[in-house]
Design a protein around this nucleic acid. Structure first.
Lengths: 231, 231, 231, 231
DNA sequence: AACTAAGCGAGACGGTACGTCCCGTCTTTAG
DNA sequence: CTAAAGACGGGACGTACCGTCTCGCTTAGTT
């Protein structure tokens, strides 16, 4: 996905190559149209021609910047979905994770979930797009979880020797599992069951290190509500 | 996916309707060709015309029995992949789960994983096919896990009040997460970390009910190796 | 240009191959649309997509039967323009030629001339189409001229030792020259000058074989007016 | 074809407009590249982008000076092909014509013929280019023929009342006919047949004015070989 | 010397048509 | 009635060029 966001990073505005510079209007119009099409019709209805028509752009302009349908879809998603679901920084790590998962599941139950599902499927037929999705979306979110887990470890809330990656997969794998396979709904109660179960596995044995107990997961941490994408 | 297996059910072989009877040859040839195509080219290369050509069948014959590309793919997979990865019935439930997960991950690391990934993606654009996949493949396997979990509960190995569905999702969700999203490899060590973590969450607190400990997960249960699809 | 006219020739109507037989409707609709487009917009406006749209046919159907834009153009012309400009069979051969040339030039001054010009140009970029045009259109017309010339030779009107092909080229070459290069108009008087000039070259020396003289080329042979394509 | 050769004609070199004067390098590079492309790929392969790339020029520079692909092609041809096939000025007019036709046909049998064919076709889709081709190429050559014919008339070799334009068309029409329509090859023997036939029509009746006879057309006029384009 | 207009290369852009792949439906013959 | 064959209308693909446009740089005059 070359140039998906050519402005980021390097700050040499004077490098000015020859020829007419790339216009931002086309780029933005295409990405917005792409996201709209993706949300409306899913991957099935997501055609380059459709996006071009809606963006008022030429197909060639799209192909100039994005090598495939899939990478355009990913780029469109990333340009819109970057506002992430944040973690509470107060209270226990376990509760921060619980409340974030609750909100994540709420978001994934809506349009955004549909789109994420489509993007994962898209990655199936374009490894490059899959890599972009993982690098720009998945990895970043996992990093945030990693930090919260580390905070929990530092506070003695979680065992020190846990396999961090496995822990993250254990927490969020079930959510993606249901989102992608669709064998069951993404419900709040189920989410809490999964969270409690895995967090319990992360917690030290009670007699040796009695961590903070949680009594009513749902009513805890009322201030932690971070921004939720409009989805 | 109507007619995926029209022979099952009713047992009145003498009714013999008029006209040329449906030949099994075409059905079998199509399913075999379909699976071969699916395995070779993935969903991308999986076209009705391609399957018809390879099967020496007419497109119409395919359309007569399967409503869509996706449901044909699912049917082809089911006709081949039904031999499941079984659980050991001796030893502890936890170890049965551990060893089965190990073998499942091994299988999903190969061609079968590729195909399963494709089928989940296919389900994305054909809800009917998705439902068939879930009903015939996912649910059945989850049922087997459910039974092992119940055995563990009955034996006092696992807590009685666990949320069964959440537990299954917590165990297998991470595997599908990595299989489908592809942010990390399906490795044996990782699998064991996840299994241990979640199983720990299922185990009663040690002071109240010290369940059977596992010492060497890898060498346990040497007899449990069930049939593994050729994949 | 395979199958441009599959009905002609062989008469084995019972050979009936398997599969849905080729429908005449599509073929006819395409040829008619093609000719209409050709006449309206010339070669420039002659696009497969345009023809398909006007014919209510799919592009694939066109490509199934005609390998190129050019061969479609030729086929369309041939399906319409086969009614030829005939020769008078009464009177002198010279006068038959004169009157036919007059009518040919009249026809080539109209839409038909435009189309013929386009077809010759088309042949430039598709040798196959060029060959088809020559075989089906040019050769046949030349054959008719050849017969008239032979009649003239037999009657002693023309010299016996003339180079037949050269004679035909000398008579009609000038017409195509002006039609294609466009350096001068196709006018009646000019046509008669050319005809007289060349026919004079074909005539035996007057003292040895005084052929029939023509006095008023324009008023001769009033009965010879054959059918003229509507062009 | 405005500006095809903006330096020619008006002789006010002092008018010097402001700004950077037009450089000859680009003009020459473009014309040379254009002719090369035309000769290599014919009209089909003749694209503005191709010429620009080969010339190392920008498309805009081409569009600044030539309004269309066709006019560029004509300009490129004219810049190269101006050396004409000259007529012998000694001997009879008839023999001058005969030998020039022989050489013309030889040239048209090679690459130059291909190019001329393409240019005539090009004229079909751009009347302006067609006009330029006729004015700069065809007319000039016809003028030369006209002079030779006049010489013949003055010498009593040809009839005085001949229609000059018709005579030229009768002589050269057959050559273009075969070149453009391609129904027969451009051969020496055929050329001589045509020339003899038409020249015979131009000659006064033998008893009244026995013009110079030609006995061995091929060996006559060995000195008349004018410059022949390399083609 | 500074200014200004044009020439020129580069390349972005909206656009048209291409020729191809596959879709899903249909009409026919063979068994 | 099933099955194979294949014609057909259709949608989208990814590509090649089109002709226009906006840039930066260069090359001369003019002031």
């Amino acid at each position: 996905m070359p140039n998906a966001n050519p402005r980021s990073g390097d700050s040499q505005p004077a490098v000015r190559r020859r020829g007419r510079p790339r216009g931002d209007e086309a780029r933005v119009a295409i990405l917005e149209a792409a996201y709209a099409v993706l949300e409306e019709g899913g991957l099935v209805g997501f055609t380059i021609e459709g996006v071009a028509a809606r963006a008022g752009a030429a197909k060639t302009t799209i192909y100039r910047w994005w090598p495939s349908r899939e990478s355009l879809a990913v780029a469109a998603f990333l340009s819109v979905a970057l506002p992430r679901i944040s973690f509470s920084t107060t209270g226990s790590a376990a509760n921060a994770i619980r409340s974030q998962m609750r909100r994540l599941v709420a978001v994934y139950s809506g349009k955004t979930g549909r789109v994420v599902r489509d993007l994962v499927a898209a990655g199936n037929s374009d490894p490059t797009a899959a890599a972009a999705f993982v690098e720009s979306y998945v990895r970043q979110r996992r990093q945030a979880v990693r930090e919260v887990l580390q905070r929990g470890i530092d506070a003695g809330e979680f065992r020190a020797e846990i396999d961090m990656e496995a822990a993250i997969d254990a927490l969020y794998g079930p959510v993606f599992y249901r989102l992608l396979v669709g064998h069951g709904p993404l419900e709040k109660a189920w989410t809490m069951s999964v969270a409690d179960l895995v967090l319990d596995g992360l917690t030290p044995d009670p007699f040796s290190a009695p961590g903070e107990e949680h009594f009513n997961a749902n009513s805890l941490d009322p201030l932690s509500a971070g921004p939720i994408p409009s989805s």
